[in-house]
Design a binder for these strands. Structure first.
Length: 515
RNA sequence: GCUCUUGUGGACAAAUUGGCUAAGUCACCACACUUUCACUGUGGAGAUUGCGGGUUCGAACCCCGUCGAGAGUACCA
């Protein structure tokens, strides 16, 4: 049987990085087995719908290179539509909910929020273990709940006919053990006495997650449900719903992923943690209605999507080998749900940066130049592709993000803005000024296409003139770049060429005189 | 509170499922290379596998207890 998986986010805002990881694991399983990966949009809560969220999800998956094979935004396959609000319009959920009513496995409930509140208060006052709408409470006379289990059939029909709002709840029997085998966690079980009668169809006619999810997974012939650990407590309900429909034999296999935790390990990573800890928790930047709802993304910070994917893949999973760097193809090849870890994985931003650095190192100078080009244009630099390529080669081992190339290496494209005066004062001695003048003269005759021979020549000159390396080399470095950090001196000189190198040195020496 | 889940160096984690001295990566420290920074390489420090019992010739792994952490507890997903 061909594997069919889905990623089913809710369009309530920017999709956070944990969602991307869930999507990635779905993608990897499908890719490994040549299966189908579906994007389904779960927009059954109209009050939480956020404009642009759906587009964001589509763009984020695309940017990460883990585009679904079918689904909203990715072509309609044979199970369209893939948006639950569209499926709702076709009446699918109501049809199935009614099936359960007919079988006597679900029932109508007319209780208002106020009545539910009153029920909870009563139960709490009694010291009940939980305050759920359940087998223990649904027909209790003193609670007076208005559902079709307690009310006469006629009364129920009358209420429905009069247009009174109602929900449909799953009728869960007492004293049963619901078992399921989770691929990651193994055997998990629940006692139905602890489970509440979940609402299946809301008063507005829309399904809840529980109903919609199962109906759609069934209709779309989903074979594996890979989702976050937060769903584990309701997995028992889900098994019961499959059973109620008579679909247990075709029920998908479950794999509940470990949570992604905050860097301090206290709680799951949330969207506010980005601002709190100073790193992105979203794939893409997001402009919310308010400033506090706007976030930076891995993309806007300068991450390579391949690094993000690689980092995410290793949050809760590893191949069991020493390999750390994986292409998407390699991930798919090695991936298996069984190797996913059970405990929550902490979000380690340093590790994320390390991955990005690795990917920058591994990217060719030409490719880096192409990526640098628009950034360089934006800064008003008129660098050629050839220059950018050479520049990338000199800087790539010194940066973590693409954006750092032009920040740390600005002096390749404009004049030095600031000299490291502390180091200049330490090494720039007036009595050596004459010798530096001579050095400038000597450097007129160097071959600026051959950094190695330049280096030899200058070092020879240093020896011949009774100077120390430490008196000269750092001075040249600061004169050319303004800072002690950066590429090899003669590589920079070769990049600049004779005229620019000499004029920079000359100008810098004059500045040094005044420091 | 109740239900479910989880616990291996600072972080991520491996351990052929009960079998040598508990891998490796990130971070940290030192050295080498660069008379810069970084990269790279070499080395180092850091763990009585949450804790306490038990079973066993032998336990990270099985059993009991205990503590911590997280998630869920909505007509949200």
């Amino acid at each position: 049987m061909s594997i069919r998986v889905r990623f089913a986010p809710s369009p309530t805002g920017a999709l956070h990085i944990g969602g991307i990881r869930t999507a990635l694991f779905n993608y990897l399983l499908a890719k490994k087995h040549g299966g189908t990966f579906i994007l389904r949009i779960e927009d059954t809560d109209q009050t939480r719908y956020v404009e642009g969220a759906e587009e964001y999800i589509i763009e984020a998956l695309t940017w990460c290179g883990i585009a679904p094979t079918e689904g909203v935004g990715f072509g309609e396959g044979s199970y369209a539509p893939y948006r639950q609000s569209d499926r709702f319009k076709q009446g699918v959920y109501k049809k199935y909910a009614n099936q359960l009513i007919d079988k006597g496995l679900a029932y109508y409930a007319f209780d208002t929020p106020q009545q539910l509140e009153a029920m909870r208060n009563t139960l709490q006052a009694e010291g009940a273990k939980n305050q759920a709408y359940s087998h223990a409470t649904r027909t209790r006379e003193d609670l007076g709940l208005n559902n079709s289990l307690r009310l006469a059939a006629e009364e129920v029909q009358k209420r429905i006919a009069s247009g009174e709002p109602y929900v449909i709840r799953l009728k869960i029997e007492a004293d049963q053990i619901v078992e399921l085998t989770d691929i990651i966690r193994g055997h998990v079980q629940f006692n139905t006495n602890e489970l509440d009668d979940k609402v299946l169809l809301k008063a507005d006619g829309m399904p809840t997650y529980h109903l919609a999810n199962i109906v759609d997974d069934y209709e779309m012939k989903i074979t594996h449900v890979i989702r976050g650990e937060e769903w584990l407590p309701s997995a028992g309900h889900h098994v019961l719903i499959y059973r109620a429909f008579g679909w247990e034999s075709v029920m998908p296999q479950f794999a509940h992923l470990p949570l992604i935790l905050k860097p301090d390990g206290k709680g799951k990573l949330s969207k506010r943690d980005g601002a709190k800890f100073g790193f992105p928790v979203f794939p893409l930047e997001w402009q919310g209605a308010k400033a506090e709802d706007s976030f930076a993304g891995f993309r806007s910070v300068g991450f390579d999507p391949r690094a993000v994917v690689n980092f995410l893949a290793l949050l809760g999973w590893n191949a069991g080998t020493e390999q750390e760097i994986f292409s998407l193809d390699e991930l798919a090849e090695h991936f298996s749900l069984e190797k996913i870890h059970k405990a929550g994985a902490r979000f380690d931003y340093d590790k994320a940066k390390w991955f990005n650095q690795q990917y920058i190192h591994a990217t060719s100078n030409g490719d880096l130049a192409a990526q640098l080009h628009p950034l360089s244009m934006a800064k008003g630099y008129e660098a050629t592709t050839e220059e950018l390529s050479q520049f990338a080669g000199l800087m790539k081992e010194r940066v973590v993000f693409l954006s750092e190339f032009l920040e740390k290496g600005y002096y390749f494209f404009e004049d030095v803005k600031e000299y490291d005066t502390a180091n200049v004062t330490k090494r720039w001695k007036p009595e050596n000024r004459e010798k530096f003048n001579n050095l400038l003269v000597m450097m007129q005759d160097l071959d600026y296409t051959a950094p190695l021979s330049m280096e030899h020549a200058v070092k020879e000159w240093i020896n011949a003139n009774g100077m120390k390396m430490g008196e000269v080399l750092p001075i040249l470095r600061i004169a050319l770049a303004g800072t002690m950090q950066g590429p090899a001196i003669f590589d920079m000189a070769a990049y600049f060429g004779k005229d620019k190198t000499l004029s920079r040195l000359k100008k810098a020496f004059e500045v040094f005189d005044k420091i």
